[in-house]
Simulated assay, not measured.
Amino acid sequence: MTYSLTRRAALIGGACAAMLALTSVPSQAAAKIQRLVSPGGIEAWFVQDATVPLIAMEYSFGGGASQDPPGKPGVGNLVADLLDEGSGDLDSKTYHERLERRAIELSFASNRDQFRGSLRMLKDNKDEAYDLLRMALTSPRFEPKDVERIRAQVISNLRRESTNPSSLSGRKFLELAFGDHPYGRTATGTLESVPTIEISDLKEYVRRNIAKDTLRIAVVGDVDADTLGKLLDKTFGDLPAKAELTPIPDVVATKPPQRAFVPL
């Protein structure tokens, strides 16, 4: 599935709106959104604002849960939960200590079509914040003990959802609406699939999905364009040039309309 200009514009607009909501941006700042291209060719949509000494960034890669391996829904979600559990020469404890010491907020999520991330920090901590993000994206550790700990948390949540009417109805809707299409998979996986996910699946997901050609970035905060361009190159510059995404077929509407009863 290729990304149309409409989809790109929607992503950029949504990300910029989310960023503007995070800080006290004056109303006139909406007219100052800049298209920034770093020296290394990384594109971002950028609002410079020095109202408060904060920098916030939202970014995404194409793919998301639709790129989970057949029969193993939940791989992207598990990757998102594990990228900040140690990277490079930092184990999970040390990595989180560095985040907490500098009050850096870092998170990842996998939805239907995108693998998304968020980064927020004080201006003075920008170099360390962007470096920690770089490490998470380029050299995640996926230590067995961390994988099993996070897997147990995911399974616990899935068990809780198995008795939740809203979760059950949502899963049933995906099943009826999309059938065997990748959109019919739940992003968090199932009680049957999550235990079968291997570390090799996590590494392969990162290799295939985290790449520069589908990268979309929005930044707002107290940083100038030249400094931001260098930070973006340092953070994303070593990623693969192109993702290896599996094409997603168009969705065909389910016919006729159906009604389902889910016993609880």
Score class of each variant (00 low, 15 high):
Ser166Gln: 12
Gly170Asn: 08
Asp180Tyr: 05
Asn164Val: 10
Asn111Lys: 10
Ala109Asn: 11
Ile197Lys: 00
Ser200Val: 09
Met121Val: 10
Ser162Tyr: 05
Leu202Val: 07
Phe142Gly: 03
Arg116Gln: 12
Leu119Val: 03
Ala187Leu: 03
Arg134Lys: 13
Leu119Asn: 01
Ser156Val: 07
Ala152Pro: 02
Ala136Thr: 00
Leu168Gln: 09
Lys172Asn: 06
Leu137Arg: 02
Lys145Asn: 11
Ala177Asp: 03
Lys203Glu: 15
Pro165Phe: 13
Lys126Gly: 08
Lys145Ile: 12
Asp131Phe: 03
Arg149His: 12
Thr138Val: 09
Met121Cys: 15
Asn111Val: 06
Tyr183Leu: 06
Glu143Ala: 15
Val194Gly: 05
Met135Ala: 09
Phe173Tyr: 12
Thr190Trp: 06
Ser193Tyr: 04
Gly189Phe: 00
Thr163Ser: 15
Asn125Gln: 14
Ser156Phe: 15
Lys126Trp: 11
Arg159Pro: 00
Gln114His: 10
Gln114Tyr: 07
Glu198Gln: 12
Glu204Thr: 14
Ile155Phe: 10
His181Ala: 02
Leu119Thr: 01
Arg141His: 05
Lys145Phe: 06
Asp127Phe: 06
Glu161Ser: 15
Arg159Gly: 10
His181Tyr: 00
Glu175Thr: 01
Ser193Glu: 04
Ser169Leu: 10
Arg141Thr: 09
